[in-house]
Simulated scan of single mutants.
Amino acid sequence: MTTADALVLRTARRTDIEAIDRLLSESYPRLLKADYPPSVLVTVIPVIARARPRLVTSGTYFVAEREGRIVGAGGWSPVPRDPTDPRTRRAASIRHVVTDWREVRRGIGRALLTHVIEDAARAGAHRLTCRATLTAVPFYRALGFTAERVEAVEMLQGIPFEAMVMWRTL
């Protein structure tokens, strides 16, 4: 990358919420259309394409900027421990990852998720989980995640949204 193309990764701030909303609402419909029918997307996109203020300001959510423009976002959250499931001990969940649809396959998602993985590991996480869109499964596989099962997440009006439950150890 040239200096003008340099990617900057930083912790998200409250002032980024509007830009993250725009990134999600512009990118998700374009990125997901090959793997989900329009009847699902028309219901699901308004629900999933909104920045979560609590997540954005958690200190574990990050943005990727190029020339001052946010071109990617994503983060992680600790998984509440379930005493009946040893996999939840020191586990974290990947959250709300997106790359600008015009910038895919330029290393943004990989750089961002690598940063997220390293940050979660520094915080003591030993296992990462995610619910990947069907579109993102190859991306997560390339970063060492294992597909476990397809899970239908019920959205508004009873519309199921299929996601792949994936995990990796750190």
Score class of each variant (00 low, 15 high):
T15A: 14
S77D: 10
D119L: 04
L55R: 08
P83E: 11
E118V: 06
H115C: 06
R54G: 10
I159G: 00
T3P: 00
E65P: 04
R50I: 08
G124H: 09
L23M: 06
A49V: 06
D100Y: 03
R30W: 12
F139H: 05
L31D: 04
L113Q: 02
E65S: 10
E67F: 05
L7K: 04
I94Y: 02
R105E: 14
D16F: 04
G59D: 12
Y140M: 05
R69L: 11
W101H: 15
T114R: 15
L134Y: 10
R10V: 12
T88Q: 05
A64R: 00
A120C: 06
V150K: 14
E65F: 09
T169N: 08
V8Q: 13
G158Y: 06
L156H: 14
P80R: 15
I45N: 02
R14I: 05
T60C: 07
R110K: 15
R66C: 07
A4T: 12
S25N: 11
G144T: 15
A91G: 09
P86Q: 12
I159P: 01
P37I: 08
V97W: 00
V98D: 00
E118L: 12
F139M: 08
S39W: 11
A132I: 05
P78A: 15
R13Q: 14
V8H: 10
W167I: 02
A19I: 08
T88P: 03
A142R: 15
L32R: 01
E103R: 05
A12S: 14
T133D: 03
F145Q: 02
R110L: 07
L7F: 04
A163H: 05
I17N: 04
H115Q: 11
V56E: 03
T146L: 11
S58P: 02
K33P: 01
A34Y: 15
A132V: 06
S77V: 13
W167M: 02
E148G: 12
Y61H: 11
L143K: 05
R102C: 03
T88Y: 06
T146C: 07
L7D: 01
P46A: 09
R105K: 12
S39I: 11
T169R: 05
E154N: 10
V98R: 00
P29N: 11
S58C: 09
T146A: 12
L23Y: 03
A12Y: 03
S93K: 14
D16V: 03
S25E: 13
R141A: 10
A51P: 01
V42D: 11
D119C: 13
P53M: 13
R69E: 13
L113S: 01
S93E: 14
I94P: 00
A132T: 06
V42H: 13
R13D: 08
I48V: 15
L113W: 03
V104T: 15
A163P: 00
R69P: 00
A91M: 07
A163K: 07
A121L: 06
A19W: 06
H115T: 09
E151A: 13
R14K: 13
P160M: 09
